[in-house]
Simulated assay, not measured.
Amino acid sequence: MSDSFVFADTTSSNLAVSASEPFQVLIVDDDEEIHVITKMALSDFELDGRGLKFTSVYSGAEAREVLSQRDDFALMLLDVVMEHDHAGLDLVKWTREELKNRMVRIVLRTGQPGQAPEEQVIAKYEIDDYKEKTELTYRKLMTLMYSSLRAFRDLQAIEHYKVGLERIISASTEIFSACSINQLSQGILEQLVALLTRSNTAAYCRIDGFTATCDKQQPMHIIAATGAFIQQIGYAVHNVLDLKLVEQLVEKATPVSFQVKDNTYYGVYKTSANHFYLLYIRGVNELSETDRKLLDMFMNNTAIAFEHAEVYGQQEG
């Protein structure tokens, strides 16, 4: 290999595997050694408790195929010269203009800077950084990862705010219908999770006839969700929850009780009609007093809204 990374000596660390979803990184380069070195150098990288998961492709054509099928890449490390001199630049243009993918952070890496002058490339193409392979020391590579993934994380949060706001506005037209309240809860939950966490995985459940033994015949149905739970709205959930902890929270006398365990928030709200609602959010390390009040208000107001919708529906019937 004509161009190589120059990495400083590092001490290995045995970091615990994070339960949070890793950032997806796409490496596009026709040099196998670049893939190997990059993965080795970043094997212990973490941001917000999230590691990295790599996908390797070796040409612009392969990259197009993968990007057409997946939209979850946080970062693309992209070589300029592959099957032809401007394969990388063509891929950037296709990703931004035809695929309309504005979220993925794109970092161009070149071993032949004369082929694509930095100033011209940055001015003409929607990339986030430009690096010569020979200048990417270990420290600079780590700095690049932090800056790129933080930018992706923040853009993702903004998108979640927008989606949540859209749901809230749409739901506000028929506030007394159960369907509308469900949509309203979904929108607010998406905004809360984007505001308070880094993982975008949460479920808001109604606990039907909860018993002290956590009998699975008494299910917890998801009524709003984000991330990994969004496809399970309307269904019962058990296997991912700490049922013993839920039981302990239900048995407390206070209307709202919560606990953060293993970076996961469990909050239980008890209504005046003796119904229970559970709010489960991953990626919560600690809560400020303001954060806790926001979550309490969410559970209180949505629970009341659902019960009012039930009464309204019975009166209409």
Rank of each mutant, 00 (worst) to 15 (best):
S12Q: 13
L245W: 01
D30G: 04
Q112L: 12
S147A: 09
S18I: 09
L165G: 05
L67K: 02
T11L: 11
I27D: 01
N263Y: 09
G114C: 05
G313I: 09
P117Y: 03
I207K: 10
A253Q: 08
R102T: 14
S2E: 10
M142K: 12
V17L: 13
I127N: 03
L77D: 00
T137G: 08
A16P: 10
Y204L: 04
I188A: 14
D154F: 11
L279V: 04
A236K: 05
L241D: 06
D3Q: 12
Q232P: 09
T110W: 00
Q248P: 08
V25C: 05
L241R: 07
D71Q: 15
R292L: 11
S172K: 04
V240Q: 10
W94K: 03
H275V: 09
A303K: 00
L241E: 01
G187T: 05
Q69N: 11
Y204F: 02
S12N: 12
V6C: 13
N239I: 13
D30W: 04
L42T: 01
M1W: 13
E289V: 13
L47Q: 02
A273R: 10
E166S: 14
P117I: 00
H308Y: 09
Q218V: 12
T213A: 15
L184M: 12
G88Q: 03
M40D: 15
D262K: 08
I37L: 15
R167Q: 14
L245S: 01
M145L: 05
H238G: 12
V237N: 14
L278G: 01
F54H: 00
T11K: 15
K124A: 10
L141H: 06
H275R: 14
Y204T: 02
F7M: 06
F258R: 13
L108N: 04
M297V: 14
K216H: 15
A212E: 14
F23L: 02
G317P: 11
G49C: 05
K270A: 05
V81P: 08
L241H: 07
K244Q: 14
K124W: 04
L75V: 04
Q217I: 14
Y277E: 07
Y266M: 03
A225N: 04
L42C: 01
L91K: 00
I175C: 07
K162W: 09
L195E: 12
E247P: 08
Q217C: 14
T110V: 03
G187W: 04
K100M: 12
H308Q: 15
D208W: 11
R96A: 03
L279Q: 01
V107I: 05
